[in-house]
Each structure stands twice: as C-alpha cells, then as structure tokens.
Amino acid sequence: MKDVCLDVEGKRLIDRVSLTLFPETISLFMGPSGAGKSLLLRLLHGLLSPSRGSITWAGRVLDDRMRKRQAMVFQNPVMLNRSVLANLTFVLRLVDNNHPHVAMELLERVALRQHARQPAMELSGGERQRLAIAKALAVQPEVLFLDEAMSHLDPPSVTLIEELILQQQRQGIKVIMVSHDLGQIQRLADEIFFVHQGQLVEHAVAQTFFANPQSFPAQLFLQSQSWSKTFYQE
C-alpha cells in the first residue's frame, strides 16, 4: 500500500498511508473509533478504490481472482434470510466445495452445530459473528481480514476463535485484523499499525509498541485504556 488517500465528498478519510504487510503474520490495526481502520481493511481487500496512491498484492493490482483467495469478516456481519447451514452452503457453493460434511465440520469448529437449522436472522450477536467467521473460513483464504470480528463474543468463544485464528496463521495464512480488546491484541498481534484520524501514526512490533509507544496519539490511547481498566476493576 503506497501513499494511499481516500476522499469522500471532499473529505479526506485516509491520508497518505503507506504500509507493507508480510505473509504468515498477524497484523493488527488499532486506533480510536472513526480513525479509519475499517476503511483501510476495505481498501486492502479491494472493496474501495483509493482516490490516490496504489495498492498491490505481491506486485499486482488486486483483481477478482486474487480477491477470491481472500476473505473478510465485516464489522457488521450480513446474513441471508435463511438457515445458518444455508448461509454457509451459499459460500461453499461459490467456491465449489459444497459437501454436507464440510459445512457441518465448519459449524462444529465455531460451535454452531446445534444451530444449523435455525434461521440466521434469529442468531444472537455473538452467534452471528461466529457464523461470519465460519463463512470466511469456508473460502479457505490465503488472506483473512477480521474487522472487530470478536467484539460480541463471550470469553469462552473468544478463546475458541482466537485458537482458530492462530491455527490459521500457523497454516501460513495471513491475518489482518482490527480489534479494540487490548488483551486480545497482546495475545494475537505480531505487529501493530496505529491509525489516528485517517493517518498511520505508528507501526511497530507488538511488544515494542506496548512497552514504548512512540506517537502521542498512541500514548494517549493506551493511557486512557489502562486508566479505564483500573477504574473498572476498583
């Protein structure tokens, strides 16, 4: 991603962001709400085109063939108005992998097997997110985007899905995610991109970032979060 800007209706939402992502690691975007994290993920995944600058994957501009090898879990997962299983088989059909046992196995992995026949619209927030993750895994992607994909999960589910993600990463899949959960970020992230008001203000290895954030917005962000943590614990 080189020198990328995104303007919408005369407003600069992403401002000259350049970054390089390397395979087989978990890259994590963090920053305050409205900073532009979701926009960056959508730019990378080719759902938005930059107003300026260029985005390339392995030297090539993203096309449909390459996007097919990526999968994205959206911040607000969208379901088709049919059963959980049918939502999953819709994706499996698209990637020519529609065997009943594959679908059930995927549901098993996100602990939704008992919900297979339930209308997807009836699912709770956390169950929806798990279905969305199963749909993303169904693509068997090489690059997996997760935009706050675990924000509604209860602790056991978080553990389950984090384990799934680490497993994906160990299999050589590139994970690019957004999260607000500091604990989770420290558990998963290899590197951190800190985004603030549409700009990339800091990029560091996760440990370095938490030990010694360089930019002022990141320092402020981490301080306020640790402050609120102590506040709530007391």
């Binding site: 449909d64 996007r67 693509v139």
Partner: peptide
C-alpha cells in the same frame, strides 16, 4: 445496499447476485 460488500468480497457473479436478492 445491505449485501453489496459481502457479495463483492465473495466475488459473487452478477446473475447469482440478482437471483439471490430476488430470493431474499
């Protein structure tokens, strides 16, 4: 509008998308 991003992400062919939307 509701499904466009997801369909785009999955590279759903246009005729499939139309049929799915009518079904939805």
């Amino acid at each position: 509008q509701h499904h466009a991003q997801q369909f785009r992400s999955l590279c759903v062919p246009r005729h499939v998308a139309i049929l799915e939307l009518l079904r939805e």
